[in-house]
């Protein structure tokens, strides 16, 4: 029970996210007067945390890749792979939630927004990681080569999604002009949303970690059965 406190916290935070996220009173000015967001603004508690969670999970994957390079254990390889896997799924969910939202606010599922294109390409970087892994049969060699690729890819991935999309105009709320993190720039994020947003980020990330621990356990059992 004591070791599982964070799973309970995860469930509680996500319950809070769903209840609060659907019931909170939206700031009238930013949701209705100055934008066409209306009730779709609530997607902010589900779409944006996916990207936060994805980046955190991929960062953890990077950490395990570095550990793998210095210590060379199979365990760290399994962990690096599992975190990358969940990170990629979070990315896919981020694209999906964004796409549903875009249908209602921008008018179509896919809009060729620079940020949409950027993350779609970014997903391919990690899909290539899994293809690289499946291409190498020797376990030790696979661990080392994929760790090298993981580190290399992460340092290109971050500028790809963090710096470049900010240099061009975007349809995302708060994405006009060269500055502004979508949805998080000071003026567009109301304090009442912040109270739900940050717990939501933590809750979704914990859920991702939970899923990852399950992947890791399955992989370990598979390794033993050989």
């Amino acid at each position: 029970m004591r070791r599982n406190w964070w799973k309970i916290l995860c469930v509680l935070l996500l319950l809070y996210t769903f209840i609060g996220g659907f019931l909170v009173k939206l700031p009238y000015e930013t949701a209705y007067l100055t934008s066409n967001l209306y009730e779709t603004m609530r997607n902010f508690f589900f779409h944006v945390p996916m990207w936060f969670g994805q980046m955190i999970l991929l960062f953890v994957s990077l950490v395990y890749a570095v550990i793998n390079l210095s210590k060379n254990t199979i365990e760290s390889d399994i962990k690096a792979q599992a975190f990358a896997q969940t990170g990629t799924i979070f990315g896919a969910l981020g694209l999906l939630t964004g796409s549903i939202w875009a249908k209602h606010t921008w008018g179509s599922w896919w809009n060729n927004d620079p940020k949409q294109l950027g993350v779609a390409i970014a997903m391919m970087i990690y899909l290539a990681y899994f293809i690289l892994r499946s291409a190498v049969t020797d376990i030790d060699k696979r661990a080392r080569i994929s760790a090298v690729y993981n580190v290399f890819a992460f340092f290109i991935y971050i500028p790809l999604i963090m710096i470049l999309p900010r240099m061009v105009e975007s349809l995302h709320p708060g994405g006009q002009g060269s500055e502004g993190n979508p949805g998080l720039s000071g003026s567009s994020l109301d304090p009442s949303l912040r109270v739900i947003f940050w717990p939501a980020v933590l809750g979704w990330t914990l859920l991702g970690t939970w899923i990852t621990t399950l992947w890791i356990r399955i992989r370990k059992i598979e390794e033993k059965s050989y």
Binding site: I121, A122, M124, I125, A128, I131, L132, A135, V136, K141, I145, V148, Y149, F152, A153, I156, P159, L160, L164
Partner: peptide, 23 residues
């Protein structure tokens, strides 16, 4: 270098390289 270590051909290099070259 990665593709050669993985004993793969230029195809794997292209798969890894095209997304990474975008920035």
């Amino acid at each position: 270098a990665i593709a050669a270590r993985a004993q793969q051909n230029a195809a794997l290099m292209a798969i890894m390289g095209f997304p990474l070259i975008i920035p």
